[in-house]
């Protein structure tokens, strides 16, 4: 296969992991997070540093990256998940900006220059093996007691609490799991592109992941998968149609999202509206 197509396919796989994991937090559990790319970045930097500075094998470094992202998910989740809706979104936004500035200013992360010379150890097969494992484990979780509790929290937090669900803990759990998968995707990204810098994991990337989930349909894993595939492939497709259209591809992409919000706000495969009205506490 042409290496250009292989690259698109690989990036699609990485984006699928990001989208289905954000869908766990935002689609299933109903917590709007705007720092998903930050967790990806933490995973990417941890895995890279573990491999470059400590000489840890690739597979172990990937898992270390995922674990450290999960750890940050826990640290940020404990204080912020007491907040609801818009307030949580703003807190996650703030966390993302702080982490970006830390990465920009630390010496070990290479500052704005980022880290280069990373060995290329990921390939399309490794990425899709990870995609399969992520989706398999997510499906198992969502069909279990744990996943049902996530959905119950989204549907009605007070009623979930009345059913004996420790809602604070389960929201943190969703956040930590989401961060874990995002960290894994970050490690894959670093070992594929061989160069990372803080701007790869900024607010725009978080929004891009959120767009994938919203386009595909909140609360549906395969919807998120489809959304990730469309948003990754479409700009490349437009580029191949005509270089002129390529210049406007970000415009098309914007129009697509606006049109979705007007005519199909629940996304391609989703059943829930993005902004669901909730009843107030009794």
């Amino acid at each position: 296969m042409n290496s250009y197509y292989v690259q698109i396919l690989t990036v699609t796989g990485i984006n699928i992991i990001l989208a289905v994991s954000l869908n766990l937090v935002t689609g299933f559990t109903g917590q709007l997070s705007l720092c998903h790319a930050t967790f990806m970045g933490i995973g990417a930097y941890t895995a890279t540093l573990a491999a470059l500075k400590l000489g840890i094998p690739f597979a172990v470094a990937l898992i270390l990256g995922a674990i450290s992202a999960a750890l940050f998910g826990f640290i940020i989740g404990v204080p912020t998940l007491r907040l609801k809706g818009d307030y949580l979104a703003i807190a996650t936004l703030g966390f993302g900006e702080i982490m970006k500035n830390i990465l920009l200013n630390l010496e070990i992360t290479g500052g704005p220059m980022g880290l280069r010379g990373i060995p290329k150890v990921t390939n399309v097969y490794v990425v899709y093996l990870c995609v399969t494992l992520v989706i398999f484990s997510l499906n198992r979780i969502m069909h279990s007691r744990v996943g049902k509790s996530f959905i119950a929290i989204r549907e009605d937090e007070l009623a979930a609490e009345a059913m004996g669900i420790n809602t604070a803990n389960f929201k943190i759990l969703a956040f930590v799991l989401g961060a874990f998968y995002a960290g894994l995707a970050g490690g894959l990204y670093a070992f594929f592109f061989r160069y990372i810098n803080p701007n790869n994991f900024g607010f725009m990337k978080s929004i891009e992941i959120l767009s994938m989930v919203v386009l595909g349909g909140l609360g549906n894993t395969y919807g998120a998968l489809l959304g990730a595939a469309i948003i990754t492939v479409l700009p490349e497709f437009l580029r191949s149609v005509s270089p002129v259209i390529a210049q406007y591809r970000m415009v098309f992409y914007g129009i697509l999202l606006v049109a979705m919000m007007i005519w199909r706000p629940q996304g391609i495969m989703g059943e829930n509206k993005v902004m669901k009205r909730r009843g107030q506490a009794a």
Binding site: I151, D156, A159, G219, N272, G279, A282
Partner: peptide, 13 residues
């Protein structure tokens, strides 16, 4: 255990 005056089921489930 309790029930709610204004029904609060998990509607999508």
């Amino acid at each position: 255990a309790r029930t709610f005056q204004n029904i609060r089921l998990f509607g999508e489930m």
